[in-house]
Amino acid sequence: MSFADSIVSADIQQLRAYILGHALWRRIEEGTLEPERLRLFALQDWWLVREAYRLDALAIAALPDLEIQDLLIRKLTPKVGGYKLLLRFGEALGLSLADFDAVEPLAGCMALTNFFYWMLAYGAPAEKLASVSASEDIFVQICARIAPALIRHYNLTAKQVEFFSAHDAIGEQVTPVDETLLARYNSPEDQQRITRAIRLSHEYEIMFYDTILTAKVGS
Results as ranks from 00 to 15, higher is better:
F164K: 07
T157F: 01
A149W: 06
A147W: 05
F163D: 07
G171E: 01
F164N: 08
G171R: 04
I170S: 02
F163H: 13
A158Y: 04
L156K: 11
A147C: 07
A169C: 12
S165N: 08
L181D: 03
T157V: 01
P148G: 00
S165F: 00
Y154S: 00
A169N: 12
I151E: 15
I170D: 09
D168P: 10
D178L: 08
L150F: 04
Y154N: 03
D178P: 14
S165G: 05
T175D: 15
F164D: 07
R152H: 12
A166E: 14
E179W: 09
N155H: 13
P176C: 00
D178A: 10
V177M: 04
E162A: 12
A149E: 12
A147S: 14
P176A: 00
N155S: 14
A158N: 11
F164W: 10
P176Q: 03
A158G: 12
A166D: 14
L150P: 10
I151T: 13
A149M: 07
A166N: 15
I170V: 15
P148E: 04
V177K: 04
V177S: 03
I170R: 11
Q173Y: 03
I170C: 06
V161H: 02
H167E: 05
L156Y: 10
E162G: 05
H153T: 02
S165K: 04
Q173V: 09
H153F: 02
A147L: 08
D178W: 14
P148Q: 04
A158K: 12
H153N: 08
G171K: 05
A169D: 15
A149K: 06
A158Q: 14
T180I: 06
Y154M: 01
V161W: 02
A166R: 14
E179F: 04
L156D: 09
I170F: 09
I170N: 09
E179L: 05
T175C: 09
L181T: 02
L150D: 03
L156I: 06
V174K: 12
I151L: 07
E172P: 11
Q160P: 05
S165E: 08
S165C: 00
E162Y: 08
A147N: 08
K159C: 08
A158V: 03
P176E: 01
V174M: 09
H153G: 00
N155R: 15
Y154R: 02
A147K: 08
P176W: 00
V161E: 04
Q160N: 06
A166C: 10
A169W: 10
K159M: 10
E179A: 06
Y154L: 00
A169Q: 14
